[in-house]
Design a protein around this nucleic acid. Structure first.
Lengths: 354, 354
DNA sequence: CTGAAAGCGCTTACAG
DNA sequence: CTGAAAGCGCTTACAG
């Protein structure tokens, strides 16, 4: 590596040309007041002429800014390791921007407890971060939090699921409707015209899980548009215990149900897989969501054929970077970033990394 | 953003504790000689104790290092816009590390001309870059270049295709064999036991395209392992003009060929799509590679069902970052990074970004 | 083998 | 409204 040539650039050169001190140049660069319109214009035109870009490193070093980001996401639980992936993406981003004086603090909540969301949110606000990343699983509580954050004038990034009409900086996550259509397309490749299909929502609190319904809508839309003769039957199961799910599912497993494919609208597809395995129903095509260890093992055994996955790791990574870019004014941030919809099978999961 | 607390850290604090000057501390940090074993040990133990991490920004700023990277890849041509994606990934990485004094210079070559590869390579070497990224399309020529680069002691990253037994820093690209297996799996979901399958290699110079054969091997292996009854017929077409390809293909389009699926081992799948469209053969399942505009339009029309794609943009992005991380000693670089194998259909291509 | 000083390209008080 | 000086946390010659 060679040395940079000592070019005549930077604040010094601007100051020299404008016949002012570098302090005044700095004031103009940052639009600080206390500069006469005259010298401001002179300096600005020199900046234009030189196509001057301030050296970010020098600027950061001199200003010694410290930026604290806060992350509010579900804890990795026994039931699901899904949140491990966004967390890993967040950690990767945090490691990369640590050198710029950015810290990231984590606040976890329990997906079964609105109270835990609330108390973590309180703690977060108390710590007065400069930017906030949230996975807004509980709609009401998240809207209330988003409003407080907006009042404080802080940038807010949503990942994984979006909230309508909020003043957030950005949303990074899936477009649900289209992923449902994709699931339908995959099933339609494989099943026969006379086969029936079951679309299953498994959630204790479907109210707070209307994103599942969006997927189901897309799913049904595909069959409608493609004018497929198959019948799509919906089933809502508001319990997540295996025995309860099995009980709900049982009548659809009889021979005369004609069900030859099951679409599970979330990552709980492994519960259905377990039940099908128990009943030795390898003939039913099973498709669901998310790159969880449990789901992968059923992909390997063939009980699950497709998993749809929307890069949870990348969501976390991009969410943090969006806050960083916004706060350091590095670049504009897009209002919505929709993740690619990945299809995972037995033959490509080895190379997927969340 | 608040100011960092004035902590007692950094070279100054180390110097103070060790009772030496910061110059000596710097010598120890960078393993420069000219320090007595005694003080070296003392300083090192203080570094350990303080868990000292040098401030990268200050270090970069003070040393004024300039790093020039060189990129040797195929030019975007009329025939294929594939190389636009790696180029975009490279540009994105270049933009991100520009602030650290890294420049990236591009040398393009024509995929139909070994001479153009040679002359671009000469030009590249003449410019004496500090690190080099290559898409080694021509095997012999690339090996020769890789050897020269190794003699110069410069780090070399390969993207898109690998060369065996070279002293390169890293390879970032697809694992070909497995993508062939995935293609076979997708086909096997859809076709019937009595159907035949055609595996087509289209390349003027198959010698230099043995990566196509790796995909074909994986493809055949799947049917073998899965004990599928389908017959897989291989066809090598060493011309790329439509008329020539059509002529080669024609006998396989007859009704008694029983061909119900065609696997094209590279991005030229759009040529086959055009021919099938002309002969009105919507009944033949077509699958091939790469997110090209031409291919996408056949995905839309339904003439192509699946495209397999291995994140060309990310390959370029990661390739540049690998060189940067290596040269700035930011982190270790993995010898081989295999891309996820993405499946693109009519229902998810909208959200794919290369 | 070691130290003292100058400097990287900015920002930040402080003084006028 | 403007300037001069000190400093961010390092690296780089130079002197001894």
């Amino acid at each position: 590596m060679k040395k940079a040539e000592t070019e005549l650039t930077g604040v010094k050169e601007i100051a020299r040309r404008a016949n002012v001190s570098i302090g005044t140049v700095d004031r103009v660069i940052h639009n600080r007041k206390g500069v006469s319109e005259n010298t401001r214009q002179k300096i600005n035109s020199i900046i234009q002429e030189l196509n001057f870009q301030p050296n970010k490193m020098a600027s950061l070093l001199a200003s010694r800014k410290i930026l604290n980001l806060a992350v509010l996401i579900p804890a990795v639980s026994n039931e699901t390791d899904y949140w491990l992936y966004p967390l890993n993406g967040i950690k990767q981003a945090a490691a990369e921007i640590k050198q710029f004086g950015v810290t990231v603090k984590y606040y976890f909540y329990d997906l079964d407890s609105k109270a835990s969301f609330h108390s973590s949110a309180e703690e977060l606000l108390h710590d007065e971060p400069h930017g906030i990343l949230i996975a807004p699983s509980f709609v009401e509580e998240s809207i209330s939090l988003a409003k407080k954050i907006h009042e404080l004038g802080l940038p807010l990034a949503f990942i994984n699921s979006d909230l309508p009409n909020q003043e957030n900086l950005t949303y990074i996550g899936p477009e649900l409707y289209q992923s449902g259509k994709l699931a339908a397309q995959l099933i339609s490749f494989i099943i026969q015209p006379q086969d029936n299909i079951l679309a299953v929502n498994i959630a204790t609190d479907l109210e707070n899980n209307h994103h599942l319904l969006r997927k189901e809508q897309g799913f049904k839309k595909f069959f409608e548009e493609a004018k497929k003769p198959n019948q799509v039957i919906s089933l809502n199961i508001n319990e997540t215990k295996l025995a309860a799910v099995e009980k709900s599912l049982l009548s659809f497993l009889s021979a005369d149900s004609g069900i030859k494919a099951i679409f599970v609208t979330n990552s709980r597809v492994n519960i259905i897989a377990k039940i099908l395995e128990k009943h030795n129903r390898k003939d039913i095509l099973l498709i669901g969501y998310d790159f969880l260890k449990k789901n992968i093992s059923y992909l390997e055994s063939g009980q699950i054929t497709f998993l749809i996955c929307q890069r949870p790791k990348e969501q976390g990574y991009l969410g943090i970077l969006a806050l960083y870019k916004h706060l350091f004014k590095i670049s504009e941030v897009e209002r919505s970033v929709y993740m690619p919809i990945d299809i995972i099978t037995k033959e490509n999961y080895q190379f997927y990394n969340g």
